[in-house]
Computed example of a mutant assay.
Amino acid sequence: MKTEALKEHQWLQQLVGEWTYESEAGMGPGKPSETFAGTESVRSLGGLWVLCEGRGEMPGCGMATTLMTLGYDPQNKRYVGTWVGSMMSYLWVYDGSLDAAQKVLTLNAEGPDFVTEGKLAKYRDEIEIKSEDHRVLTSHVLGDDGNWHRFMTASYRRKGSD
């Protein structure tokens, strides 16, 4: 049952390491953006998965811990993963793909609408590799107007790369 790492799995390994992040998030229509910061520790699981554990401030929630898993499903030729946070009970499930330049991993998910309680919305997270020591996560939500709206951007820098 042993699976050999493919180039898609190897792409994820560039996320492994210790990171700090600074983020800005929109808090809803008519509300000002908030900034927050934290750290993330990313480790490899067998060269096939990465486990990304974040700790930091979360707007409206105080300190929080998050855990993202990312891998690649060779059968479906799609990146897959999950995201959970200590501030909510929802399990986010990712399905995504890498752009042709192999710089942006786009992950799609469905989750709680942050505006209308009890409603689900479509989300898109993009992990863009800027350099070996810098990446940017941008989160979007699909609005009722049919357009994607950016609500959060986080800039990650590898510790010790300054």
Rank of each mutant, 00 (worst) to 15 (best):
M88C: 15
V104G: 08
S23I: 01
D145P: 01
I127C: 03
V80T: 08
R157G: 10
S33E: 12
A25F: 08
S131I: 03
V16N: 07
D73I: 00
S33V: 10
D133Q: 12
Y79D: 15
G143N: 13
S161Q: 09
Q10F: 08
W83C: 06
C61L: 09
Q75N: 13
M63T: 03
I127T: 06
D162G: 11
V50S: 05
G143E: 15
H9F: 02
Y156G: 03
G85H: 07
S161M: 06
G96M: 12
G143T: 12
Q102F: 09
D125M: 08
K2V: 04
L51I: 01
Q75D: 15
A109T: 07
Q10K: 15
E8Q: 11
K2G: 03
L51C: 06
Y79R: 01
E34C: 08
V42G: 06
Q10W: 09
Q75C: 14
D95G: 10
G26R: 09
S44C: 00
Y72T: 00
G54H: 12
P59R: 05
E40Y: 10
A64G: 11
T39K: 03
V80H: 10
C61V: 07
L51H: 10
W92R: 02
M58I: 05
G85N: 08
K103E: 12
W92Y: 09
V80P: 04
D73E: 14
T116K: 14
I127D: 01
S44K: 00
E57G: 05
E8V: 00
E53T: 09
M1D: 10
L6T: 12
C61E: 15
D113L: 00
D125R: 00
A64D: 15
A101I: 06
M152S: 15
Q14S: 08
L67R: 14
K77T: 01
H140V: 01
L107I: 08
K2F: 01
L91H: 11
W49M: 11
E40V: 07
D133Y: 14
G81C: 02
R43A: 02
A64H: 14
V136G: 04
S41V: 00
A154V: 02
E126L: 00
P59H: 04
G143M: 14
I129L: 13
T65D: 15
A109I: 04
L120K: 06
S131G: 06
V16Y: 06
H134T: 02
L12Q: 10
E40A: 07
A5H: 01
K119L: 05
L120S: 10
V104D: 15
A100Y: 09
S97K: 15
Y156H: 14
E132T: 00
H9N: 05
R150N: 11
W19I: 00
A101P: 09
D145L: 03
T65W: 04
L120M: 13
D73Y: 05
Y94D: 04
K7C: 01
K103C: 03
A121G: 05
F36D: 11
G54E: 00
